[in-house]
């Protein structure tokens, strides 16, 4: 009974050992063997976990058949991140527009991604209505810009905001990823031209 066996017992070695050894050496060996076995179990557990994880990763990254529904490409930007709207200037209202109408032009640019469709353009004031040229919906491809003429009609002069600091246009945008509405705050020149146009439109009314 002097054999101490291999430092790393082989498969089944421990299970088939005889009765537990008495005495210091035996306890040391038994403790050592126990530790080794625990480490072996840890190592085996880790290996098993690694195999499972590896298998899981392989499974997760296996080639997929095309999805039955259209899913957006991860690189497709949200429409509001691809679009910019800037103010160009005022211009006369088109012939045939109702009285108390005026026009302003903006430039819509699409920087990247798939084409973006403008489905709606609105402004926030109850006393105004608007139409656009081209009329919504219209599509603009990437790396291009489109001039839009906004013709506003004052429906109620008493409620029209004569000198708002930060008027904006709400533009609803759609691309293959999403449909979103963004307020484009067009800055002081737009605010000034809008105020002036409202002043003119409503003072004409009183004449």
């Amino acid at each position: 009974m002097s054999g101490i066996g291999p430092p790393e017992p082989g498969e089944g070695t421990r299970a088939w050992d005889g009765p537990r050894q008495k005495g210091h050496a035996g306890r040391t060996r038994a403790a050592l063997a126990g530790r080794c076995a625990r480490h072996r179990r840890t190592a085996l557990s880790l290996a098993a976990a690694a195999v499972l994880l590896g298998g899981g990763a392989l499974y997760a990254t296996r080639p997929h058949p095309p999805a039955p529904t259209r899913r957006p490409h991860p690189q497709v930007p949200y429409p509001v991140h691809a679009v910019d709207v800037t103010y160009l200037g005022a211009r006369p209202a088109p012939a045939g527009a109702p009285p108390r109408s005026f026009s302003l032009t903006v430039l819509l640019s699409v920087a990247s991604g798939p084409p973006v469709t403008v489905t709606r353009v609105t402004q926030p004031y109850a006393a105004l209505s608007l139409v656009t040229e081209p009329p919504a919906p219209f599509r603009t491809p990437a790396d291009s810009a489109r001039k839009i003429t906004i013709t506003m009609h004052v429906t109620e002069c008493e409620k029209a905001p004569r000198n708002a600091e930060l008027p904006f246009l709400d533009v609803t945008l759609r691309n293959t990823r999403a449909i979103q509405t963004q307020s484009f705050i067009l800055g002081p020149r737009y605010a000034q031209d809008l105020s002036q146009a409202l002043e003119v439109a409503c003072s004409n009314r009183s004449r």
Binding site: V80, D84, V85, T86, Y87, L166, F168, T181, Q182, S183, F184, I185, L186, G187, P188, R189, Y190
Partner: peptide, 8 residues
């Protein structure tokens, strides 16, 4: 609930 961009 609403987002805006200042482009002035």
């Amino acid at each position: 609930v609403k987002s805006g961009t200042y482009t002035g």
